[in-house]
Write a protein that binds this DNA or RNA. Structure first.
Length: 599
DNA sequence: GGTTGACTTT
């Protein structure tokens, strides 16, 4: 136990240094706010609170406990502040999720005649990053260059992150390229910038380069792995994802929760929900994020009831759901036809969980009602006074339009389509959908009218596409055009068979299940209104006739249950239908499934 | 004394 100096000693000049040291030591080791406050009081009594160095320590003690109000009070009362006081307070505001206040302080530094240094600039860039404030970030970047700090490692990494989060990958790469010296954080920031901006291939490429560096100092961390696994998830790269899983296990003693969450998500997106579950169950104390990953993953696999069980389990463990969790729950209900439960969760979001439904929740609910054919209720919900931006509103009206299309509700489709055109969003696909709807009921003039309107306005529809992986190659299929793909005719035949079977079972196309051929394709054929439909498969490695193995990744939402798709495929192909992944196979026979490991 | 990177989203 250390001896506490008596206050009387502090009045003597030779004891000042000792007192400083003692107070600072106590502040740094304060286990709770009460202890820090007590030390504060002692510092105040000793008169040392006027000392900037000591006061900064006190400031940090408060900030360590996220007490920004106390810290701010102290800061405002300090007779003299320096660059450390300003930077510390800025970082404190960032820690409590108030980056705007950090930038406000940064802006006030000049009038206080305090010159920002590399620490301050890195902190300010971090605030821009959190706000995705590209404009301010660019200004700070210019200032960094003016001050000759371009080669600073921390600032450069912060800039890469800021550009990445603001969707300016090119500038992130520019900063990365100009760095003289890089550490694993700069590499990870650049890899994440790619992964977060739908450039997963570049993320994987850069990760490969990092490995080739073969430097101990640049050994990938759990941060790096989480980013690359995320890239695999968005690309549907199961093999690479598994290799990364193995690498994490080999290199890291303990797989941390964030990496585990990324793995749960990756396996789900690559069609291996069993693996997701396995990884998830290995997490000792899963937080809201892995739970949410698992809920969403199960929902996308048509296992809505499992999602709901997970949600209950999460609540029973006292883990508070967030807005994304509720979105996952609604998504699960929507894709498994659990309307009443979905409505119950939507209605109790605010009251039970304190989460106000926003545009995304409304859209999900509209999708749920729309899928079930409750179009009038869905429309009513769309017209409720929810304040929406153009993009959110377009998502909502687009969802309603798809539902109207699937259920042939022309009059509501017209209303939804009109809204979309007014919003100047999804214009091309709206026109195509409307034209197809008119054509399907024989109203050729209306269909033709819309096509003329498209031409007049110069609206062109980009053909939609899906892709498959065949071993290490990716094949892209454009809507209505399978001919450009190897084995295209066989695949087309399989899709046609599937379509017939699904229709026999009463399946009505969902937003990404059945895709109308694009209008230009129809124009090529010189026929308006005769639409062909293209089915997308679920996922998995599927043996189709003549030994062609295809892996279909897209459109997991088809009929809300991929197992249903597998069953159908097995009926079409015969009894020897096998779904493979790298380690396991699933053999479907007479509607039941046998699984096994290859090794 | 104060600075940089990760997971879930309709």
């Amino acid at each position: 136990m250390k001896r506490t100096p008596k206050l009387s000693l502090l009045n003597q000049p030779h004891s000042n240094l000792q007192a400083h040291t003692e107070f600072i030591h106590r502040l740094q080791n304060s286990q709770d706010l009460k202890a820090a406050a007590k030390t504060h009081s002692n510092i105040f009594k000793s008169g040392l609170s006027n000392h900037t160095f000591t006061a900064n320590h006190l400031l940090n003690a408060y900030l360590r406990f996220n007490k920004t109000t106390d810290a701010r009070k102290l800061f405002d009362e300090m007779p003299e502040t320096n660059v450390v006081s300003w930077t510390a307070l800025m970082a404190g505001y960032i820690d409590v999720g108030e980056p705007r206040e950090a930038l406000r302080l940064f802006g006030r530094m000049a009038e206080a005649r305090i010159q920002a240094n590399e620490f301050t600039l890195a902190t300010a860039i971090n605030a821009c990053s959190l706000l995705a404030d590209l404009e301010t970030g660019r200004k700070i970047h210019t200032r960094v260059e003016t001050l000759g700090l371009s080669s600073n490692l921390v600032i450069s990494s912060a800039l890469i992150d800021m550009y990445g989060k603001s969707n300016d990958v090119d500038n992130a790469r520019q900063v990365f390229n100009h760095m003289i010296c890089r550490n694993v954080i700069s590499w990870t920031s650049m890899i994440s910038a790619y992964a977060q901006n739908a450039q997963g291939d570049y993320a994987l490429g850069l990760f490969r380069e990092l490995i080739y560096e073969n430097s101990l100092a640049l050994a990938p961390t759990q941060f790096t792995f989480a980013s690359v696994i995320n890239a695999c998830a968005s690309l549907g790269r199961l093999v690479a994802g598994k290799a990364l899983h193995l690498a994490v296990i080999r290199r890291c003693h303990v797989v941390n929760d964030v990496v585990a969450s990324a793995l749960v998500d990756m396996y789900a997106k690559c069609g291996c929900i069993d693996y997701s579950d396995k990884v998830f169950r290995q997490i000792l104390q899963p937080t809201v994020i892995p739970f949410t990953s698992m809920i969403v993953g199960a929902a996308k696999h048509g296992l809505g009831k499992h999602s709901l069980h997970l949600f209950d389990e999460m609540l029973a463990r006292g883990i508070r759901p967030n807005d994304v969790t509720l979105l996952g729950v609604l998504y699960a209900c929507s894709h498994s036809g659990l309307i009443d439960i979905g409505l119950y969760h939507f209605n109790s979001m605010q009251l039970k969980h304190g989460i106000a439904p926003d545009a995304r929740h409304y859209t999900c609910l509209i999708d749920m009602l729309g899928r079930a054919g409750h179009l009038d209720e869905a429309y009513k919900l769309s017209t409720e006074n929810v304040p929406l931006g153009a993009v959110d509103a377009a998502l909502m009206w687009g969802t309603l339009l798809s539902a109207c299309r699937n259920h042939g509700r022309l009059e509501l489709a017209v209303k939804a389509g009109k809204r979309l055109i007014e919003l100047n969003q999804q214009v091309a696909s709206t026109y195509v959908t409307m034209s197809n709807m008119y054509a399907s009921i024989g109203r050729w003039e209306n269909a033709q009218g819309i096509r003329s309107e498209m031409k007049r306005r110069g609206v062109r529809k980009e053909p939609g596409c899906s892709w498959v992986e065949l071993r290490n190659s990716t094949y892209v299929f454009y809507a209505g055009d399978l001919s450009s793909c190897t084995h295209g005719s066989e695949i087309a035949q399989l899709l046609r068979d599937l379509e017939v079977r699904m229709k026999e079972r009463g399946y009505v196309g969902g937003s990404s299940g059945l895709v109308f051929v694009d209008v230009e394709e129809e124009a090529k054929q010189g026929v308006v209104g005769v639409h062909s439909e293209r089915l997308a498969l679920g996922f998995g490695l599927i043996n189709i006739p003549k030994g062609v193995t295809i892996r279909v990744m897209k459109n997991l939402r088809m009929c809300g249950d991929c197992h249903e798709a597998f069953k159908l495929i097995s009926e079409i192909i015969g009894r020897d239908f096998v779904v493979r992944d790298v380690n396991r196979f699933h053999h479907f026979r007479d509607g039941s499934c046998t699984c096994g490991d290859y090794w």
